[in-house]
Each structure stands twice: as structure tokens, then as C-alpha cells.
Design a protein around this nucleic acid. Structure first.
Length: 150
DNA sequence: TATTAGGAAATAG
DNA sequence: CTATTTCCTAATA
């Protein structure tokens, strides 16, 4: 923990490739220590193409709707700390980190909004599915349920 | 205090 | 017009 010994360098990590390039260009000598605490894990984990969907195989890829985003998130093990299935057969899931899930939704959705979204508006979006019959209320904190698992 | 359901109206695409 | 987003009231934990 002697920061007077040598300088640390801060990596530019908007992608995993960028991080690897950075590490390659900074050999492990004391004068080129890398400040790993500066790495944005969220950004490194985020791959825009992973969040694109299409209804038909010949249709153009597009950003997902809210329920499609939720399914994508739930089926991606990388994001198990954000949300996960409680009972996949029954379509029941729980959001573990509301703040991060909302941030991710803002990055993934196609619709642009004026304000920054919060869990209040995000969860209202989910609740809109109750009236359509696509989701069923569970009356449990951070826990939601898809009406049908296809 | 925070979250839930859901009405009503506005807004992006 | 559809799919949210924004805003809000009431109930509950």
C-alpha cells in the first residue's frame, strides 16, 4: 500500500478488448501499475448486441420490449446478482438489485426519455402487464410473475 | 420510509 | 395506435 513507490495508471475499459489491450501495453513493472479499482465492471459486462431481439428470424434485430428485456436478463447468468428466477416453471422471479436493473434497462431500451428512470417508473411498466394478463401480481417485494411460460 | 396496485394522462416511436 | 413513462393516491410493511 505504498503509493509513493510508483505511479498507477488508469485503464480505459469500455470493452473487454480495450482492457486486454491496456494490460498488454502496460507490462507488470512497478512504474506501470494498473489501477484495477478504476475498472467499470458494469460497462465491461455490457454487450449491446446481447440485448437485441427479433420476432421472426428474417426480421431486423431491435431493442427488446420490457418483458423481453426481463426474460433476457433472467436467462443471463452474468446478471444473476441483478435478478434471477425463483421458479422458472411458474415464471416467478425476483429482482435483487433494482437500481442496477433500472440502469441496465435505460441502456437497453430503444425508447428515449427525458428524465432518468427510477424503480418507481420501472415497476409501473411491469405492472402495466397485469391488466393485459401477461403478468400476475405476487404481492411480494421485488417479486413478479409471468402469466405464461412459453 | 419504501414498496405495492392501479387510475389517468402524457409521450416516444 | 402501442408500449411505455410520468405522476399520483391509497394501502401495507
Amino acid at each position: 500500500m505504498d503509493s509513493t513507490l510508483s505511479p498507477t495508471t488508469t485503464p480505459e475499459t469500455d470493452s473487454a478488448e480495450a482492457l486486454l489491450d491496456f494490460i498488454d501495453s502496460h507490462p507488470t513493472n512497478p512504474e506501470n501499475r494498473i489501477d484495477f479499482s478504476a475498472i467499470d465492471i458494469e460497462e465491461l459486462l455490457f454487450d449491446p448486441t446481447e440485448w437485441l431481439v427479433h420476432t421472426d428470424p428474417n426480421e431486423k434485430m431491435r431493442a427488446p420490449k420490457l418483458y423481453e428485456f426481463l426474460v433476457l436478463l433472467l436467462n443471463n447468468q452474468s446478471y444473476s446478482a441483478y435478478a434471477s428466477w425463483v421458479d422458472k416453471e411458474e415464471g416467478i422471479f425476483e429482482i435483487h438489485n433494482p437500481t442496477q436493473v433500472v440502469k441496465l434497462w435505460e441502456k437497453v431500451k430503444s425508447r428515449k426519455t427525458k428524465q432518468k428512470m427510477n424503480f418507481d417508473t420501472f415497476s409501473r411498466g411491469i405492472r402495466m402487464y397485469y391488466a393485459r394478463g401477461d403478468m400476475i401480481p405476487t404481492y411480494t417485494r421485488y417479486t413478479y410473475r409471468f402469466a405464461s411460460m412459453k
